[in-house]
Design a protein around this nucleic acid. Structure first.
Length: 270
DNA sequence: ACCGGAGCCTGTTAGC
DNA sequence: TGCTAACAGGCTCCGG
């Protein structure tokens, strides 16, 4: 599941390969991959554009293009972005292809077809509802405290809410709550100021570790060169049900919250 | 304001 | 062994 660290890893890998390249064509065999506008208009508007910059906002890749256009890609569950020579054999799970002037292709591999491509002159219309970036300096303890204040939601579903904080998914939500020693069913407005501080530290620690490890290849995620990340070898609780807690040895438990698997240590997290 | 469920998908896995 | 049904999960939309 590509989350903030996986998308950030992808962005960093794509930058040296794609910045200053020009898009020469767009191929697609699954039109629903293109969220907006139509496939035909996407092809027309991307033709000949230069990629000026590649950045990340939450779990979106943001390609700044010449002529005021922005290409947004969300990998959702199973998306991979791969850069290969255009003569490489096609894989049946590649649904959108961006041809480049240098003879390579940016291929959007997406087994479960949840991923989406947007072309827009107004990216804020797609990105506008997102909450703060958890690794930026503007995301202070005070900001987190303010956003938790008065909320009577369970911590786990709240961390997954992209309007609350952007970029956290199921892996890093569970890891963050473990580091903060907070039970996933705690209500947001019951945290002490010390616990808010612990949660802030924990979110940044989990995400930073994920970036350092170049993402978690637990399901289908791989880097643009096809190799795996390493975060799956560093998780404390995610999908470690029944295995001993790395802090106290108590078996990790699993429960479903908000329809999502949730993994936690029943002894450490209160 | 918050919660739960459906829907979008396909490959894997649990259960019979 | 071979089949089917359940499951995984990011996000949006809908109804309560």
């Amino acid at each position: 599941m590509p989350e903030l660290p996986e998308v950030e890893t992808t962005v960093r890998a794509l930058r040296p390969l794609l910045v200053n390249q020009a898009i020469t064509y767009v191929h697609n065999n699954w039109p629903r991959h293109i969220a907006t506008p139509s496939l035909a208009e996407t092809q027309y508007r991307l033709h000949g554009r230069h990629i000026q910059a590649i950045n990340r906002r939450a779990k979106y890749l943001v390609f700044t293009l010449s002529g005021g256009e922005t290409l947004l890609i969300h990998l959702k569950m199973s998306g991979r972005l791969l850069v290969v020579d255009r003569h490489e054999t096609a894989d049946k799970h590649v649904h959108t292809v961006f041809g480049l002037k240098n003879g390579q292709e940016l291929r959007f591999w997406d087994q479960r077809k949840f991923g989406r491509v947007y072309v827009t002159r107004h990216p804020e219309q797609v990105l506008g509802r997102l909450g703060p970036e958890p690794l930026e300096t503007a995301f202070t303890i005070q900001v987190l405290a303010q956003r938790l204040h008065g909320r009577s939601r369970l911590l786990k579903p709240l961390l997954l809410d992209q309007a609350f904080v952007a970029g956290i998914g199921n892996i890093y939500a569970d890891e963050s709550l473990f580091y903060a020693r907070l039970h996933p069913q705690r209500l947001a407005n019951t945290l002490t100021s010390a616990e808010v501080t612990a949660l802030h530290t924990a979110i940044q620690k989990a995400l930073t570790l994920g970036i350092e490890r170049e993402g978690a290849s637990i399901d289908l995620y791989v880097k643009p060169d096809g190799s795996k990340g390493d975060m799956q070898n560093a998780v404390a609780v995610f999908r470690r049900t029944g295995l001993p807690c790395k802090e106290c040895g108590t078996p990790i438990e699993r429960m479903v919250l908000g329809g999502r698997s949730t993994h936690f240590c029943p002894n450490c997290q209160t």
